[in-house]
């Protein structure tokens, strides 16, 4: 799997896809969707689709693809290599969502939560397969959130396709297992070869699994806090683990969109009954609009 495009710029999202097997353009296909790296506080999240003609699902199954979580890294690599060999009937595509994209989406003025980001990415990948001309007739998705709601949404979006959203779909349907292997292989490779945007001379690569409850990951986060900038972009700032470390170990930051109420705190209730203290002289609107104040001290 060639992730060089990601290594060039890993601040946004990056899509990779296999060539579309000719048979998938003609014959009706099943398409599986799965993700890897949803939970970790470090590194990208990868969404993958894998598709194969209905008539050849048995062959895909014969590769002994299984839920990627039940496989070792070397088994996953081996299975992915096998799928690459079977490129005459198996196709895949994936979206790598950088930790920076995840942070900035979740911490935006308008919050874009991880579920919506996931759903939209999955929809984007299915659409991508359709745009490439893959004759998709069935879609299988491993659940994110409530399966019913997700299924309704996807079914509405793709009315001509039979959509199945199910918990543990990655263990039940070979196309989903195959997608989960693609996603996991890509996530592992992306993490292993991660090109840090920042210039960090004494970077410690021993960050453990990347899951928030891993003591190694926690220790790594604490070690790499920068008082002003927080963390390298490899870290998902929006994760609670990252936020609480920042609260304790980094300098405070007040954003211009944090409401005035938050900043000043509400006035005491008794303040409404007291006579007003002499008002401070407010400058002319001209100065207020330009953020200008007269300085009496430096």
């Amino acid at each position: 799997m060639d992730l060089s495009e990601l290594e060039e710029d890993n601040t946004g999202r990056c899509r990779l896809s296999s060539p579309v097997p000719a048979v998938c353009l003609k014959e009706p296909c099943a398409l599986g969707v799965d993700e890897a790296g949803r939970g970790p506080v470090l590194g990208p999240m990868v969404y993958a689709i894998c598709y194969c003609p209905l008539s050849r699902l048995a062959e895909l199954k014969a590769l002994k693809v299984a839920d990627s979580k039940t496989l070792s890294e070397s088994e996953r690599d081996r299975l992915f290599a096998k799928m690459e060999k079977d490129r005459d009937f198996v196709g895949w595509a994936l979206d790598v969502l950088s930790p920076n994209l995840i942070s900035t989406s979740m911490l935006g003025r308008v919050k874009y939560n991880l579920n919506s980001l996931s759903h939209d990415t999955a929809v984007g990948l299915v659409q991508h397969a359709l745009d490439q001309g893959v004759n998709v007739t069935q879609v299988f998705v491993d659940t994110v959130g409530l399966p019913e709601k997700y299924q309704d949404r996807l079914q509405q979006r793709f009315p001509g396709i039979e959509v199945t959203v199910k918990a543990k779909a990655d263990a039940l349907y070979p196309v989903v297992s195959a997608a989960s292997i693609c996603a996991k292989v890509a996530r592992d490779k992306a993490v292993k070869d991660w090109q840090f945007v920042e210039k960090l001379p004494d970077l410690d690569a021993n960050y453990g699994s990347g899951y928030p409850n891993d003591p190694k990951t926690k220790a790594w986060l604490k070690k790499h806090v920068e008082p002003v900038f927080g963390f390298p972009q490899f870290v998902r700032f929006s994760w609670r683990t990252a936020q609480s470390i920042l609260e304790k170990e980094a300098e405070g930051v007040i954003w211009e969109d944090s409401s005035a109420e938050d900043q000043e705190g509400l006035g005491r209730i008794t303040s409404y009954f007291l006579s007003e203290s002499p008002r401070r002289h407010t400058p002319h609107r001209y100065f207020q609009e330009r953020g200008l104040e007269s300085a009496s001290t430096l």
Binding site: E198, K199, L200, E226, P227, V228, F229, P232, E251, G252, V253, I254, W255, E256, D257
Partner: peptide, 16 residues
Amino acid sequence: PCEVLVNGPAPVERFF
């Protein structure tokens, strides 16, 4: 567009 509640040097060249 924010205020960092500290005055002092910061590794702008390495991080930003």
